[in-house]
Amino acid sequence: MDPATTGTAGLQHVATFCGQCNCGCPELYLDPAADDERRVVITDDFGQRIQMSLGQLADLVADARNGVLDEVLASAS
Results as ranks from 00 to 15, higher is better:
16 T>D: 07
29 Y>P: 03
6 T>E: 15
50 I>Q: 03
77 S>E: 13
23 C>K: 12
12 Q>M: 07
18 C>Q: 11
62 A>G: 06
56 Q>D: 12
29 Y>M: 01
8 T>W: 07
72 V>T: 04
16 T>N: 01
53 S>I: 00
1 M>Y: 11
14 V>S: 02
11 L>T: 08
59 D>G: 01
56 Q>C: 01
29 Y>A: 06
1 M>Q: 05
8 T>P: 06
38 R>Y: 09
75 S>T: 14
68 V>P: 03
15 A>Q: 08
65 R>C: 10
48 Q>V: 01
50 I>E: 10
17 F>S: 10
8 T>V: 14
70 D>T: 08
41 V>M: 04
15 A>C: 03
42 I>C: 02
74 A>R: 15
12 Q>L: 12
3 P>D: 09
2 D>A: 10
38 R>H: 14
16 T>I: 00
52 M>H: 03
60 L>A: 13
71 E>H: 12
58 A>T: 08
54 L>F: 04
77 S>M: 12
38 R>K: 14
62 A>D: 13
70 D>V: 00
66 N>Q: 15
16 T>S: 12
57 L>Y: 02
73 L>R: 13
21 C>M: 07
41 V>I: 02
52 M>N: 03
61 V>A: 12
72 V>M: 08
68 V>W: 07
56 Q>R: 13
47 G>I: 07
2 D>C: 09
27 E>A: 15
32 P>Q: 09
48 Q>W: 07
2 D>E: 11
55 G>H: 05
7 G>D: 08
3 P>N: 09
68 V>L: 08
54 L>Q: 11
9 A>F: 05
46 F>P: 00
7 G>L: 04
66 N>A: 15
28 L>V: 02
32 P>T: 05
63 D>S: 11
25 C>P: 10
15 A>P: 01
18 C>G: 15
1 M>T: 13
3 P>A: 07
65 R>V: 09
20 Q>N: 14
24 G>P: 06
14 V>T: 03
34 A>C: 12
64 A>W: 00
44 D>E: 09
8 T>D: 10
20 Q>D: 14
37 E>V: 04
50 I>G: 14
8 T>A: 11
55 G>Y: 02
36 D>G: 08
49 R>S: 14
67 G>C: 05
43 T>C: 07
62 A>I: 00
52 M>E: 03
17 F>M: 11
12 Q>T: 15
32 P>Y: 06
67 G>Y: 03
2 D>L: 11
44 D>M: 05
23 C>F: 04
